[in-house]
């Protein structure tokens, strides 16, 4: 009789975690239902919408159509892993907040992961490169302009070495 469950061992946001999961679980189901990481969203659940995007070895991938076993041995980063260990927001998260780049917020974790993957491999992307990098993430609320502006602002901040800037001070400047 073939086993219905197996132990999976993943590196998620820098931590090694194990869980017993059904053998046909996706990475998204494992993150959400076995590891309590509900930041990655279950949207279309068939690889269209991008809400489940996580980083696998730095590459944006769709966790809803990734069998969990494919993530073994890779470095998994979810939206929960973008902020620092002390809770300090990633500049992308901060700029999304400051720019009003999220409305209902359902697409936001996936977009943040796609954008984080982009900035890691291309710290100074053009607007066109940002559009391309986020073209696999559907947002039905904001219309993308604020999202692109937030990514540009985060890139500028990371580029200037000012990632740690006090957000209160920055917020005042924007409002």
């Amino acid at each position: 009789m073939a086993p219905t469950h197996r132990i999976v061992r993943l590196t998620v946001n820098g931590d090694t975690r194990t869980a017993g999961v059904p053998v046909h679980y996706t990475l998204l189901e494992t993150l959400r239902y076995a590891m309590g990481l509900t930041g990655s969203k279950q949207g279309c659940d068939k690889g269209d919408c991008g809400a489940c995007t996580v980083l696998l070895n730095g590459e944006p991938r769709l966790s809803c159509i990734t069998p969990v076993w494919e993530a073994e041995g890779l470095d998994v980063v979810t939206v929960e892993g973008l902020a620092g260990p002390d809770g300090a927001l990633h500049p992308l998260q901060d700029e999304f907040d400051l720019h009003g780049a999220a409305q209902c917020g359902f697409c936001t974790p996936g977009i943040l992961c796609s954008a984080a993957g982009l900035l890691a491999r291309n710290p100074r992307p053009t607007r066109e490169e940002i559009r391309e990098a986020l073209s696999g993430n559907l947002c039905r609320c904001t219309g993308y302009t604020k999202i692109y502006e937030a990514v540009e602002a985060a890139a500028a901040r990371l580029g200037s070495g000012d990632a740690e800037r006090e957000r209160g001070e920055r917020k005042e400047g924007v409002s």
Binding site: G50, T53, E59, P60, L62, I65, S114, S135, G136, N137
Partner: peptide, 9 residues
């Protein structure tokens, strides 16, 4: 083909 995440996989 499709979008960036799908092309990565």
């Amino acid at each position: 083909v499709a979008g960036p995440q799908l092309r990565n996989a």
